Amino acid sequence: MKVFDLHCDTLYKAVTMSHGFSCSDYEVQTDVDFEKYLQCFAVWIPDDLSIKQGRALFEKAKITLPKECKINNINLVDSFKEINNSTKNKLAMFTLENCKIIDNDISYIKYLADSNIKTATLTWNDTNCIGDGAMAEHPTGITEFG
């Protein structure tokens, strides 16, 4: 049975702090355990970033993750079928935390899928084009676009 660790901040920290995964800097290191889990490397899009800033952060993560996986012998999976059939250790997936960067553009969802995003949380704390996050000031639920 495959067990997933659905989130770690390693990718976000590597991108925002300009460090690699194997950096000895304590702030970059997180609890990643490939012996127990398939690791989901999330790129978090903070609510206070503009769409342009969030998309730039995503693009940087999209470039960083495959490079870091290659350097650290991590197998970045392309499909869920690959997970079930894999005998490799150190499996990882690319995920997105906060779909704010979709910005009411349905074609951007395909772009995310084509960018190898396998799972995504719809919101974070605030409201975005899809719906309200956990800390939304005046929550109304999912939006019409959502």
Results as ranks from 00 to 15, higher is better:
138 H>M: 14
63 I>S: 15
122 L>I: 10
25 D>W: 10
60 K>R: 15
1 M>P: 11
30 T>C: 05
87 T>A: 13
63 I>Q: 15
38 L>P: 05
79 S>K: 11
74 I>P: 00
69 C>P: 02
21 F>R: 08
19 H>Y: 12
74 I>Q: 04
86 S>D: 12
92 A>V: 01
114 D>G: 08
118 K>F: 07
115 S>I: 07
16 T>S: 06
101 I>E: 01
100 K>I: 06
20 G>C: 10
105 D>T: 14
95 T>Q: 01
42 A>V: 00
115 S>L: 08
52 K>V: 12
44 W>D: 14
65 L>S: 00
31 D>P: 02
99 C>G: 05
70 K>Q: 15
99 C>H: 03
22 S>T: 11
137 E>W: 11
66 P>V: 07
81 K>F: 14
73 N>H: 14
63 I>K: 15
49 L>G: 13
59 E>Q: 10
87 T>M: 12
65 L>F: 02
111 Y>A: 14
137 E>P: 08
71 I>A: 14
31 D>T: 05
116 N>I: 04
55 R>I: 00
93 M>F: 10
81 K>L: 15
10 T>L: 07
22 S>M: 11
119 T>I: 09
5 D>C: 05
78 D>M: 12
12 Y>T: 06
136 A>V: 05
68 E>H: 01
144 E>F: 11
92 A>Q: 01
48 D>K: 13
6 L>T: 09
105 D>F: 13
64 T>H: 12
131 G>M: 00
103 D>N: 06
102 I>H: 07
41 F>L: 03
39 Q>K: 04
32 V>Y: 00
34 F>R: 02
110 K>M: 06
116 N>G: 04
67 K>G: 11
104 N>W: 09
36 K>W: 03
21 F>E: 04
97 E>T: 00
139 P>A: 04
83 I>C: 02
29 Q>R: 01
4 F>E: 09
32 V>W: 02
110 K>E: 08
143 T>M: 11
119 T>Q: 06
54 G>K: 01
55 R>G: 04
43 V>R: 08
95 T>P: 03
34 F>Y: 02
24 S>A: 14
29 Q>S: 02
44 W>V: 15
89 N>D: 13
137 E>R: 15
146 G>Y: 06
135 M>L: 09
36 K>H: 06
127 T>M: 11
33 D>W: 01
133 G>F: 00
131 G>A: 04
143 T>H: 10
109 I>P: 05
106 I>A: 12
51 I>L: 05
92 A>M: 02
31 D>A: 10
32 V>S: 03
134 A>I: 13
54 G>T: 03
2 K>H: 15
128 N>E: 11
49 L>H: 13
29 Q>P: 04
98 N>Y: 03
73 N>Q: 14
35 E>L: 07
35 E>K: 04
7 H>S: 02
144 E>K: 14
106 I>K: 10
5 D>Q: 00
62 K>Q: 13
21 F>Y: 11
117 I>A: 01
29 Q>K: 02
85 N>Y: 10
7 H>D: 03
115 S>R: 09
78 D>S: 13
129 C>A: 08
13 K>Y: 07
10 T>V: 05
75 N>R: 08
118 K>H: 10
55 R>Q: 02
32 V>T: 03
49 L>M: 15
